[in-house]
Simulated assay, not measured.
Amino acid sequence: MIDRLRREDVEGIEHLGTVAEASPWLLRHFTEVPCGFASPAEDYEESPIDLNTVVMDPHHREATYLVRAKGHSMTGAGINDGDELVVDRALEPRNGSIVIAVYQGKATCKRLRYMANGRPYLKAENPHYEDRVIAEGDEFEIWGVVRYALHKLI
């Protein structure tokens, strides 16, 4: 069942888009900024940086895409409603990885965990949402590991 899912058959995946083809997005880059008291001795600018090189593994360009988070089930992991998630399909999901998965034909973002018997489950990072244990025969596929969550602060 895992291999039969197609993007157009999955609810909630309509906004997937690749960032692998993105052109450089250069931003001015300053030295590290202390989160305590400012130091006047460190008041200079470094070379511009390309955000693609910050959030994307250069060896996984074709396997990297963005998806917009919807809902509040992952707020405990720092993922908020409306955040843009940078997802890498080339990374091997591990116990504890935050993943984009398709479960029973619906896309979801959850933490991947394994029970003592080896059965996977998808853990919500908000106590108001249920975890999903993957049963034998369920439609289940992991579509990538979340590397970054980009969100506005104001």
Rank of each mutant, 00 (worst) to 15 (best):
F37D: 14
S23E: 15
V86F: 00
D138Y: 07
R119D: 14
R113M: 04
Y114N: 01
V102W: 06
T64H: 03
Y44T: 13
V10K: 11
L51N: 07
E46Y: 02
S47G: 12
K152A: 11
Y103I: 12
V86K: 03
A77F: 01
V145S: 05
V102M: 00
D9N: 09
N126K: 00
L26E: 13
L27P: 01
N95H: 15
A107D: 11
G71K: 13
S39L: 05
V55G: 00
G36E: 13
V133P: 04
M1Y: 15
G82Y: 04
Y114D: 01
Y148R: 00
R28L: 11
I134V: 07
H72R: 06
G96H: 12
L85W: 01
L85N: 03
T53Q: 13
L51A: 04
V67S: 03
G118P: 05
R111W: 09
N52P: 09
R147G: 07
F37M: 13
E141F: 06
E45L: 03
L150D: 09
I2Y: 10
H59L: 14
A90N: 06
A135T: 11
L51H: 02
Y121W: 09
A135H: 10
A20D: 13
Y114K: 03
E92C: 10
D88I: 06
K70N: 03
H128K: 10
E92Y: 10
D3F: 08
L66I: 11
I13T: 13
G144D: 03
E45M: 12
R94N: 10
A116G: 15
Y129H: 05
P120K: 03
Y129T: 02
K152N: 12
Y65A: 05
S47E: 14
L112Y: 03
T18E: 15
P93S: 05
D81M: 04
I98C: 08
D9R: 12
H60T: 05
N52E: 10
I13M: 14
R6G: 05
D83K: 00
I142D: 06
N117M: 08
Q104V: 05
Y121N: 08
T18Q: 15
V67F: 01
R119I: 14
L5Y: 05
R68I: 14
R4C: 06
L91Y: 11
Y44L: 07
I79K: 04
S39A: 08
T18S: 15
S47A: 13
Y103C: 15
I134D: 04
S47P: 09
R61E: 13
L91V: 15
L150T: 07
R7Q: 13
R4W: 11
S39Q: 12
G36L: 09
H151F: 07
G71D: 02
L66P: 08
E130P: 09
V55H: 10
C109M: 08
C109V: 11
F30N: 10
G36C: 08
S97L: 06
Y148F: 01
Y121L: 09
G17M: 15
T108P: 11
